[in-house]
Design a protein around this nucleic acid. Structure first.
Lengths: 126, 126
DNA sequence: TATCTGTTATACTAAACTTATCACAGAAAA
DNA sequence: TTTTCTGTGATAAGTTTAGTATAACAGATA
């Protein structure tokens, strides 16, 4: 999977890394049990420091997307705590929806966006 | 409207301020044309520095939620650029949905969350 | 043995966040 | 007119975070 970092973005590099990898998992470009590049290797290909990659991997571990094996590095391993995930999703959606509502975006339009995105993820995960 | 800041949060104070005010607009606790407290007044009631409030107000202005009048301070004034708002909402939703999909949350569950949140906002905006 | 892995520690720069003052111009009210 | 409120600007300083740069260590593997 190709990971692209926008060095002009406001978003921190480690955060972009996390999101890209999560996106990769959602679209099955990374699959359960698959191993991510080593921290040094990924750091070199992107052109950043090893510790920045390590920080991203640690956060992914903490958030239940990977497990870190001393021998093989970071392995995709989803912790399916759905109650927790639903709670977090609701909190994040609350912020996005508040902004949308202020701008006059209706409930149907949001549902439509959700469907577009889900369709897109499912299309890319085959 | 009561604005509460969590000083132990990872989220920056100015960012929490923005989100709370946007939430207030979404639930009609702040209405179009209404004026927000002055930067000094709000800073004092919260117990933070004036410039932190000013930063929040400036961002709200930039994002099209308020206009800043030299005489009256920050006034709720939504800039209804719906195309822009839809684009931004889609980008933010993409990140949230990717996480949800990884955790096995289905499309229907997301739709349900959206409805819950919309119901909640509409109930609080009367 | 040589090489790969993650881990840890330290040091440093740069940027972001926040606070702290001081001062100014414009508007409004006493 | 004077006082007091508004936002704005400049400047300084403290704290935290992000990122880089090295170095070293232990465990696994070839």
């Amino acid at each position: 999977m190709i990971i692209e970092i926008d060095f002009n973005s406001d978003e921190a590099i480690y955060s972009q890394l996390c999101n890209q990898i999560i996106l990769g998992i959602a679209t099955s470009q990374f699959r359960e049990g698959e191993q991510l590049p080593s921290v040094r290797q990924l750091a070199e290909t992107i052109g950043i420091n090893m510790h920045t990659v390590n920080k991203a991997y640690s956060i992914l571990q903490q958030d239940g997307f990977v497990k870190i094996d001393r021998r093989r590095g970071a392995i995709i391993a989803i912790d399916f705590d759905k109650l927790q995930a639903l709670k977090e999703a609701k909190g994040e959606l609350a912020v996005v929806l508040a902004r949308a509502i202020c701008k006059g975006i209706g409930r149907d339009e949001i549902h439509s966006l959700i469907d577009q995105l889900y369709d897109n993820y499912e299309r890319n995960s085959q």
